[in-house]
């Protein structure tokens, strides 16, 4: 068993995490004075001084950095300057709503994208393939904010079928999920198609047919598992795209999730909340990538038993 691979991936995740934290620290503390950036120019100097003290900005840089890590370890990422509540709490309470949206969209994306890609590959260059690929390219060329507005225009304004804002019931999820999942479904359909086509052209597929394996078995048992391996990477990337897309989607449909909070915080320059949100997203992405690497380990024997994860 190639445990070196696992150790390497976990180490890399930790290094990336440290990198993210440092990056945020640099952006927040080194590129400018966040206090003077946040407050109007004509603020009383005493108040500025007070805030600098509260934020620990009059300490030497290395001390700030150490304190910063200590704060993260305690789960303390500062307080929102809008309402004085802990930033972490503000983010955490929004997470369920965002998860509800992103996980549903993720499922939609996979359940629509993967079968569409498979159908397209198996009907290569015939009409189902052409139709699916046209929809797919249109899907990921359509910016989600425009798609969302079109949906509202048609289904809320004109047809009055669906609510344009979140109300908590299932009906209000339809449009946001469609808005958020469409582009990803298009990308996945395309990728699944091309990787399945590549696998179908491989010698081992031809050899399996030459051994008399029926075509549907060749696809199900040989081609699809092999095509799934590179697809995992793209699915991992899609998690990032979903998080980015949720910001827009939540804003359009007044969805009370992290994304919308992040945007209002950026506009209001509520740095503590922005920082907590970015760190939360980064942590999610690092975990997602680690899961992708783990999936490789489970699915691909060349990584599971190979030397250091790289083939000679």
């Amino acid at each position: 068993m190639n445990t070196g691979y696992l150790i390497q991936k976990v180490l890399r995740a930790l290094v990336t995490l440290a990198l993210v934290v440092t990056f945020i620290f640099i952006v927040l503390r080194v590129t400018g004075d966040p206090v003077s950036a946040m407050l109007p120019d004509d603020t009383d100097p005493a108040i500025i001084e007070q805030m600098r003290e509260d934020w620990g900005l009059n300490q030497p840089l290395w001390k700030q950095y150490v304190d910063y890590w200590a704060g993260i370890a305690r789960g303390d990422l500062g307080t929102s300057f809008l309402d004085g509540r802990p930033a972490t709490a503000k983010i955490l309470e929004r997470i369920p709503k965002t998860l509800q949206l992103t996980i549903t969209s993720f499922a939609f994306m996979l359940l629509v994208g993967a079968p569409a890609g498979i159908i397209a590959a198996l009907s290569r260059n015939r009409w189902p393939d052409r139709t699916i690929m046209t929809i797919s390219v249109s899907g990921f060329s359509l910016p989600n904010f425009f798609l969302g507005i079109l949906l509202i225009l048609v289904f809320s304004v004109w047809l009055r079928l669906l609510p344009s804002a979140s109300s908590g019931d299932l009906k209000s999820m339809i449009m946001p999920v469609f808005t958020l999942g469409t582009a990803g479904a298009g990308v996945i359909a395309r990728f699944v198609r091309s990787s399945l086509l590549e696998v179908l052209g491989k010698q081992y597929v031809r050899a399996a047919i030459a051994r008399g394996m029926p075509l549907h078995q060749v696809v199900l048992r040989v081609a699809l598992p092999n095509a799934a391996i590179p697809t995992i990477t793209i699915v991992g990337f899609m998690i990032g795209t979903l998080i980015a897309g949720s910001i827009v989607t939540e804003t359009i449909f007044s969805w009370p999730g992290v994304g919308r909070l992040l945007i209002t915080s950026v506009t209001a320059r509520d740095l503590a909340v922005v920082q907590a949100g970015v760190m939360m997203i980064a942590a999610t992405m690092i975990v997602a990538n680690l899961l992708v690497d783990l999936a490789y380990f489970v699915i691909d024997p060349r990584i599971r038993f190979g030397s250091s994860g790289e083939r000679q």
Binding site: V27, F237, S265, A282, M285
Partner: peptide
């Protein structure tokens, strides 16, 4: 490569938002 991997896994818009939060829009 560490930076490249980090960037590839992090939605760019999040980083852009973090920077804009500090510099202002």
């Amino acid at each position: 490569m560490v930076f490249v991997d980090f960037q590839a896994s992090m939605p760019f818009v999040i980083i852009a938002l973090a920077v804009l939060a500090v510099t202002g829009t």
